[in-house]
Simulated scan of single mutants.
Amino acid sequence: MKEDDKFLKDMEDLNEWQQNQYNPGHYIGTGRIPRPILNLTKYPRLLIIAGVLGLILPTAIVLLTDTAITELIFLFLTPISIIIGGILRIKGK
């Protein structure tokens, strides 16, 4: 039961954050990272999966259009850094 309560609290916090993320006058709490996002770093395999999925879009754009890979290099940097972060967390454990 306690895990369900914690999950529901996390979902409420995340929903509130999503509803007010662009509202500059909304109280942001203590300035800490929301728990659902913070918990993502506890599961490095999810980071690696998210990074791989993030590489699919730029790769598809390069393959399906005439766009040069050098024009899309910034789209590759974020997923690659997420994958590297996941690998480093796995090594750290």
Rank of each mutant, 00 (worst) to 15 (best):
M1I: 09
K2Y: 06
E3K: 12
E3A: 12
D4R: 13
F7L: 04
F7C: 01
L8Y: 08
K9M: 07
M11G: 07
E12Y: 04
E12G: 02
D13P: 03
D13M: 07
L14F: 15
N15G: 02
E16Q: 13
E16R: 15
W17V: 04
Q18A: 15
Q18C: 14
Q19I: 04
Q19L: 08
Q21S: 14
Y22F: 12
N23D: 11
N23W: 04
N23K: 10
G25F: 03
G25M: 07
G25H: 10
G25L: 05
H26G: 01
Y27L: 13
I28E: 01
I28C: 04
G29V: 10
G31R: 08
G31M: 12
P34K: 15
P34D: 09
R35P: 00
R35W: 04
P36F: 10
P36D: 10
P36H: 09
I37A: 07
L38W: 01
L40C: 11
T41V: 10
K42P: 03
K42W: 11
Y43P: 04
Y43V: 15
Y43F: 13
P44N: 13
R45D: 04
R45Q: 11
L47D: 02
L47C: 04
L47A: 06
L47K: 00
I48M: 11
I49P: 00
A50G: 03
G51C: 13
V52T: 12
L55M: 13
L55G: 10
L55I: 09
L55R: 05
L57E: 12
T59S: 12
T59Y: 05
A60Y: 12
A60Q: 07
I61K: 15
I61Y: 09
V62Q: 05
L63V: 05
L64E: 13
T67H: 11
T67M: 13
T67K: 10
A68T: 08
I69R: 11
T70L: 10
T70K: 12
E71D: 11
L72K: 06
I73L: 14
I73S: 11
I73H: 06
F74W: 09
F74M: 15
F74A: 15
L77E: 03
L77Q: 05
L77Y: 01
P79T: 01
I80Y: 01
I80W: 02
I80A: 14
I80R: 07
S81H: 06
I82F: 02
I82A: 00
I83Y: 00
I84K: 10
I84N: 11
G86F: 00
G86Y: 00
L88A: 09
L88I: 02
R89W: 06
I90R: 09
I90C: 04
G92C: 11
K93A: 05
K93Q: 08
